[in-house]
Simulated assay, not measured.
Amino acid sequence: MYALSLVPTSLLSLLLAWFMPLAHANYFVVQQPSQGTQWTNGQANPVQWTKGVGDGVVMTDIEMSRISVDGLIFVAQNVPTSPGSINIFIQDLPEADDYYLLFLNSTVGVMYGTSPRFSVSGSSNASSPIANAPTVSVSGAPNPTDVFATTFPALANGVAVPGWKAVEGAMPQLLALFGTMAVCLLSGAWIVL
């Protein structure tokens, strides 16, 4: 506690106002593939997830990786997180039982969630694809120099524009902005006096 008393309160207020919008918990759970799911080469395999409401995550990148082999398979970029489903058609993937999916923002390196471990085989006992969900095709072994198999059109980034209208998410930004300005003005007046 003594160390914090050495920091000027104006600096602490500015830091708290700056980082307050970041202090919320994200919720991103992958339901499919589940533990023990077996994907089949030559078929579309379903992927489903649930995410938090109002978390600002409107799109995600999906990558596939293996535990025992270095490298990634870049599945899809800018996948809309709502409605929370996609089909992945796999072809010529090495058969193994140590695959998992990564859901992230690859631009800034933020991880939203991972799937449980699942397997890829040549037998045909896979789940049926999700109707009305987009399908992405991937093939071959993990290769970190490949590009994403599919890139969806970019969506709005979910950042609310500051303004007087009660736009979703704008009020906390306005409060942080005006709070920061007030602290700066009071700090300047304190120094002058």
Rank of each mutant, 00 (worst) to 15 (best):
Y2N: 14
Y2S: 14
A3L: 15
S5I: 11
S5Q: 13
L6I: 13
L6Y: 14
S10G: 12
L11P: 01
L12S: 15
S13T: 12
W18E: 11
F19P: 01
M20A: 15
M20H: 05
L22Y: 11
H24C: 00
H24W: 01
N26S: 08
Q31L: 14
Q31F: 11
P33E: 03
P33F: 02
S34L: 07
T37K: 02
Q38I: 13
Q38W: 00
T40N: 08
N41Y: 07
G42E: 10
A44S: 09
N45F: 07
P46V: 01
Q48N: 08
W49P: 07
V53H: 06
V53N: 08
G54N: 15
G54R: 08
D55R: 02
D55W: 02
D55Y: 09
G56V: 06
V57D: 06
M59N: 14
T60F: 00
D61Q: 07
M64I: 02
M64Q: 03
S65W: 01
S68F: 01
D70M: 03
G71K: 09
G71E: 05
L72W: 07
I73M: 08
F74E: 06
V75L: 10
P80D: 10
P80Y: 02
T81H: 05
T81C: 05
S82T: 12
P83S: 06
G84D: 07
I86G: 01
I88S: 00
I90Q: 00
D92K: 09
L93V: 00
P94C: 02
D97H: 04
D98L: 03
Y99I: 03
L101K: 01
F103W: 10
L104P: 03
N105R: 11
S106H: 05
M111E: 05
M111G: 04
Y112A: 10
Y112E: 01
T114M: 09
S115C: 02
S115H: 05
F118P: 00
S119N: 03
S124H: 12
A126G: 12
S128I: 01
P129F: 07
A131Y: 04
N132Y: 01
A133R: 01
P134I: 04
G140C: 03
A141R: 11
N143W: 05
N143K: 11
T145W: 05
V147T: 14
F148R: 04
F148T: 04
A149N: 12
A149V: 13
A149T: 07
T150F: 05
T151K: 06
T151S: 15
P153A: 09
A156S: 14
N157V: 03
V159C: 12
A160Y: 03
V161W: 08
V161Q: 13
V161T: 13
P162V: 10
P162N: 11
G163K: 03
W164C: 04
K165C: 06
A166Y: 11
V167I: 13
V167T: 15
A170M: 08
M171L: 11
M171S: 13
Q173N: 08
L175S: 09
L175I: 11
A176L: 08
L177H: 07
L177P: 03
F178C: 15
M181S: 13
C184R: 06
S187D: 14
A189I: 14
W190C: 12
I191S: 11
